[in-house]
C-alpha cells in the first residue's frame, strides 16, 4: 500500500542503506530512521531554515526534500561538524559570541553559514545578514550570530595566512 524505495545515503561520512516511504522527508529520515535528532523542524514549509542540512555540500531545507531524493548523495548534518570534542571554528565562535540561546535554530544556521563561509571567506556584515536572512531565530536578535560568523571568517583567514 505504501510506496517505498531502497536508498543508500552517506551521512556524515557513514554509509546507510534503508528502505523508506517515498513520502518521507529528508529531515524525517535523518531524525527518525538514523536517530540524528540534531536537525530540527521549525516550520515544515521551507521558511524558518532550522532543518537546513548540506546535500553534496549545498545547504538546503531538509523539510522540502524527500529522503529518496538523497539516494546516492552525501549529506552533512550538525552532528558531522565537530571532530569528537573539538568544535569547528564556526561552532567555537558561536560559543564565544553567545550566538545561541535556546539552540533550536542553531543547527540550521551552522549548516547555512558553514556553506556561506566556504563560498565567501571575507564577507561584510551586510553579506552575512543577507546570507542569514533565510534562517529565523526568535531568541538572539541575530547580532551575536552575525558577529560569530564575522569572527569565524577572521579566524579562518588568520589560519590560512599562517599556513
Amino acid at each position: 500500500m505504501s510506496d517505498t524505495r531502497n536508498i543508500s545515503v552517506v551521512v556524515n561520512g557513514k554509509s546507510y542503506q534503508r528502505t523508506v516511504d517515498t513520502r518521507r522527508t529528508l529531515g524525517d529520515f535523518l531524525r527518525l530512521d538514523l536517530g540524528l535528532t540534531g536537525t530540527h523542524f521549525g516550520c515544515e514549509h521551507g521558511v524558518c531554515g532550522a532543518c537546513t542540512v548540506r546535500v553534496d555540500g549545498t545547504a538546503v531545507r531538509s523539510c522540502l526534500m524527500l529522503a529518496v531524493q538523497a539516494n546516492g548523495k552525501s549529506v552533512q548534518t550538525v552532528e558531522g561538524m565537530a571532530e569528537g570534542d573539538i568544535l569547528t571554528p564556526l561552532q567555537t565562535a558561536f560559543r564565544d559570541r553567545h550566538a545561541l540561546q535556546c539552540g533550536f535554530c542553531t543547527p540550521g544556521i551552522l549548516m547555512t553559514m558553514a556553506e556561506f563561509l566556504e563560498e565567501n571567506p571575507a564577507p561584510s556584515e551586510a553579506d552575512v545578514r543577507d546570507a542569514l536572512s533565510g534562517n529565523l531565530c526568535r531568541c538572539t536578535g541575530y547580532q551575536n550570530i552575525v558577529d560569530a560568523v564575522l569572527q569565524t571568517a577572521d579566524t579562518l583567514r588568520k589560519t590560512r595566512d599562517a599556513a
Binding site: 521551507g46 545547504a59 538546503v60 531545507r61 522540502l64 547555512t112 536572512s133 533565510g134
Partner: peptide
C-alpha cells in the same frame, strides 16, 4: 528570490 537555501534547489 527567496534565500540561499531555496535558490540552491
Amino acid at each position: 528570490v527567496g534565500h540561499r537555501q531555496t535558490r540552491a534547489r
